[in-house]
């Protein structure tokens, strides 16, 4: 099964990199869920929490504070001004 390649980056460092089955993030319009094969998206991330379900069935929770989310070719980038693992 295809997996998502996820990068969570903050302005001054990389917060989390890994493979995931599903990513749920909060954009200005509401929550967006990304599964492998999702169409390319560029969205503005609202303050809040993003949840990443890794291939190891773990849930990684990241607090992202303002930034954007980009999805293309099963590659998800969450770039936030400030981001930290919860």
């Amino acid at each position: 099964m295809a997996t998502l390649e996820v990068n969570v980056v903050a302005a001054d460092r990389e917060v989390w990199v890994g493979e995931a089955k599903r990513v749920i993030a909060r954009t200005l319009d509401g929550e967006i869920g990304v599964l492998p094969g999702h169409e390319p998206v560029l969205g503005v991330v609202a303050d809040g929490e993003a949840r990443i379900l890794t291939t190891g069935e773990d849930t990684v929770r990241v607090k992202a504070d303002g930034g954007f989310l980009s999805v293309e070719n099963n590659r998800v980038i969450i770039a936030a001004d400030q981001a930290e693992l919860l």
Partner: peptide, 28 residues
């Protein structure tokens, strides 16, 4: 080449939010 992106909520809003950050990042 860039794929055809879907913008959330709109291209303008995305650009509005991205550009100041882009500038900050270049300054940094």
């Amino acid at each position: 080449a860039f794929p055809l992106y879907e913008f959330e909520p709109s291209a303008e809003a995305v650009l509005d939010s991205l550009l100041p950050r882009y500038i900050d990042s270049r300054i940094l």
